[in-house]
C-alpha cells in the first residue's frame, strides 16, 4: 500500500484545487442569480441602516414581491429590508437577524408570525440543513461562525455547517442558472379559486407533526420569547403581526386560538405590540393561493392596516 500513498496524496491535492475552482465558480454564479435569500440580501444590501427589517416565513414574502417593497418605501418614506424566508420559524429568523445586526442597523423589526412554525422541527432546526436554502447562501465568515454556534447551541444538524462551508449544495445546485425567486412570486397577480382539497393539503404540509404536542409548542414559544428579549436588548423596536388568511382556511388551522392567546400573552408581558390581522374581513379574491395575499389583497391590507404601523416605528425602549 505504501507505494500508493504518494500518488494518492497528489491525486487528492489536485482534486482539492479543482474543487476550489468549482466552488469559486458556483459562488460567483450565486451573485449573478441571487435574489431572495436573506443572507444574500444582507451582504448585498445597499444601505447600512434601515427603518424596518421584515422577518417571518412565506406570509411575509409578498411584501417584497415585484415592486411592492419600493411601493411601501415610497408610501411611508421608510427604508425597508425584507429578510423573510419561506418555511422558517423563529430560530432561523433570529439567526438571520443576528447576522444582519453584525454590520447593519435597523430602527425596528416587523415580525410576521405564523403558528405552523411553532409545531415542528421541520420549520426550525431542520430548515438550516435544507439544500434549497444553503445553495443560495453566500459564503460569509460571520454566517459560518454563527452556524457553528447554532450547531452547538440549538442542535442544528452539523451537516448543515459542513455543507455550507464546503459549498457542496452550491456546486450541486441544479437550478444554478435560474434566478433565486420563490415560486409564489410568479403568481402574485393571480386570483386563487378556493378548493377544499387544496386547503387540506396545505394544512397537512404546514403541520407535518400536527399541533397537539404541547412540549414542542412550549419550546418554540420559549425560543420566540428569547428572540423578543434579544431584539429588545439590542435596542431595536419590535412589532409582531399576523397577516390575513381566508376564514375557511383559518378554521382548518389546528389550535390557532391557543396560539393567538399564547403569543398575545407573551408579547403583552414584554410590552411589545401584537397586531393580529388574521381575522380581518378579506375578499376571497385577494389571495393568489390558499393563504397568501396577491397584489390586490396586499395593497388593500397595506393601505388599511400596515401603513399606519410602518409610519410609526416603535423605539427599542418601548
Amino acid at each position: 500500500m505504501k507505494h500508493l500513498a504518494k500518488p494518492a496524496l497528489l491525486f487528492v491535492a489536485i482534486g482539492l484545487v479543482l474543487y476550489a475552482g468549482l466552488y469559486a465558480a458556483a459562488e460567483s454564479l450565486l451573485y449573478r442569480t441571487g435574489d431572495t435569500n436573506p443572507v444574500y440580501k444582507i451582504v448585498t444590501a445597499p444601505e447600512r441602516r434601515y427603518d424596518w427589517v421584515i422577518l417571518g416565513a412565506s406570509h411575509a414574502m409578498p411584501f417584497d414581491f415585484a415592486d411592492f417593497n419600493a411601493y411601501m418605501e415610497r408610501e411611508t418614506g421608510r427604508r425597508i429590508l425584507n429578510l423573510a424566508t419561506p418555511g422558517t420559524g423563529v430560530i432561523y429568523n433570529r439567526f438571520v437577524l443576528e447576522r444582519f445586526l453584525e454590520d447593519h442597523q435597523t430602527a425596528a423589526v416587523l415580525y410576521v408570525v405564523d403558528s405552523f412554525a411553532f409545531h415542528s422541527r421541520a420549520w426550525n432546526e431542520e430548515r438550516f440543513a435544507d439544500a434549497k436554502l444553503l445553495r443560495r447562501t453566500p459564503l460569509d465568515a460571520a454566517v459560518a461562525k454563527r452556524l457553528l454556534a447554532y450547531t452547538l447551541r440549538q442542535g442544528i444538524d452539523p451537516r448543515a455547517l459542513l455543507d455550507y462551508v464546503t459549498g457542496f449544495s452550491k456546486i450541486n445546485n441544479r437550478e444554478r442558472l435560474q434566478r433565486d425567486i420563490w415560486e409564489g412570486e410568479a403568481q402574485f397577480e393571480r386570483v386563487h379559486r378556493p378548493s377544499a382539497s387544496a386547503d387540506r393539503k396545505r394544512i397537512d404540509y404546514l403541520f407535518p407533526d400536527g399541533a397537539e404536542d404541547a412540549r414542542t409548542f412550549a419550546r418554540y414559544l420559549g425560543d420566540f420569547a428569547a428572540f423578543v428579549d434579544f431584539v429588545r436588548a439590542r435596542g431595536v423596536g419590535l412589532v409582531v403581526i399576523k397577516t390575513p388568511v381566508p376564514a375557511r382556511f383559518r378554521q382548518l388551522m389546528p389550535n390557532e386560538d391557543r396560539f393567538d392567546q399564547s403569543v398575545a400573552h407573551l408579547l403583552a408581558e414584554r410590552d411589545v405590540p401584537f397586531r393580529d390581522f388574521s381575522q380581518v374581513p378579506t375578499d376571497p379574491g385577494h389571495f393568489f393561493d390558499t393563504d397568501h395575499l396577491n397584489r390586490a389583497g396586499l395593497t388593500a391590507f397595506f393601505t388599511q392596516h400596515l401603513k399606519p404601523v410602518l409610519l410609526q416605528p416603535p423605539t427599542g425602549q418601548q
Partner: peptide
Amino acid sequence: PVAVRWAAYYAVLAALLILGRWQ
C-alpha cells in the same frame, strides 16, 4: 498515461458533484 487516466477520474467526480442528485 496517468494524465489521461486522472482526467477521466476527475471528470466523473466533477459530474457527481455538479450533476448528481444526492437527496
